[in-house]
């Protein structure tokens, strides 16, 4: 199964503390294969978030390279790459306006403009997460941390990405919604296992056991495989 080409391959990633010598990422090598559910564990400050942000090319790195389907990603290819490899932050940032406006926003970007906001699809996803259509009208400033995570998850999934980088992306949800979100993501992956993958960062060891089929552990900016 590992004979397949990885979706994303990070080689020799290095990142220093801005203006310092301490290494946030120390020669990290990581591959994510299609169909995979990879968990990244490790103590706080070990570099998990820094690694996910580096993979999504949100921060410049001091060394190393990210390959996407065997090709390096640079310059104006980056937005299209990020449309495929979506990073979800622990505390999602929503824009002013309603939930629906937040979900529509990405379709104004050049790389998603060919597609339309699919309200029915979104409402179906919302039902799976235990919310109904009226949720779309809610102003984003009235949302709880958990509700904001629901919006952020939908905002990403509706774009039909290839790889989701989930950085504690369900940490503020209630247990029932966490289970629903895990189911939703499992089914999303099962829909196209040869073309999708999930990377989880979670402090919840139980969740890691439930959702991951491979785990790597980070320690002081270095990556060590667990199995």
């Amino acid at each position: 199964m590992r004979a397949r080409e990885p979706l994303v391959k990070a080689c020799g990633l290095r990142r220093r503390v801005p203006g310092g010598d301490e290494l946030l990422l120390d020669d990290v090598r990581l591959e994510v294969f299609p169909g995979e559910r990879l968990a990244i564990t490790g103590p706080s400050g070990s570099g998990k978030t820094v690694l996910l942000r580096a993979i999504s090319l949100l921060d410049p790195v001091d060394g190393g390279i990210i390959h996407w389907r065997g090709q390096p990603v640079i310059g104006d290819e980056v937005p299209a790459y990020r449309g495929q490899v979506i990073y979800l932050h622990q505390r999602p940032a929503l824009l002013e306006g309603s939930v629906e406006e937040n979900l529509k926003e990405p379709f104004r970007f050049a790389i998603h403009r060919a597609r339309r906001f699919d309200r029915e699809h979104v409402v179906a996803l919302l039902r799976e997460l235990g919310r109904d259509e009226s949720f779309l009208e809610k102003p984003s400033r009235d949302l709880s941390g958990g509700e904001a995570q629901v919006v952020a998850l939908l905002r990403a999934i509706q774009l039909r990405p290839t790889l989701l980088l989930l950085d504690e992306a369900t940490a503020s949800l209630d247990p029932a919604t966490v289970a629903a979100a895990e189911d939703l993501l499992s089914r999303w992956l099962a829909d196209a296992p040869s073309d999708r993958a999930l990377v989880w960062v979670s402090h919840d060891a139980e969740q890691t056991r439930r959702v991951a089929d491979r785990t790597v552990r980070m320690n002081a900016g270095q990556c060590e495989p667990e199995r």
């Binding site: 999504s56 949100l58 104006d76 937005p79 299209a80 990020r82 449309g83 495929q84 979506i86 990073y87 979800l88 932050h89 999602p92 940032a93 929503l94 824009l95 926003e105 990405p106 970007f109 050049a110 790389i111 998603h112 952020a152 905002r155 990403a156 774009l159």
Partner: peptide, 11 residues
Amino acid sequence: QVEAMLALGAT
């Protein structure tokens, strides 16, 4: 917000 938009594929 700026980073969230970049993360979703905004230029």
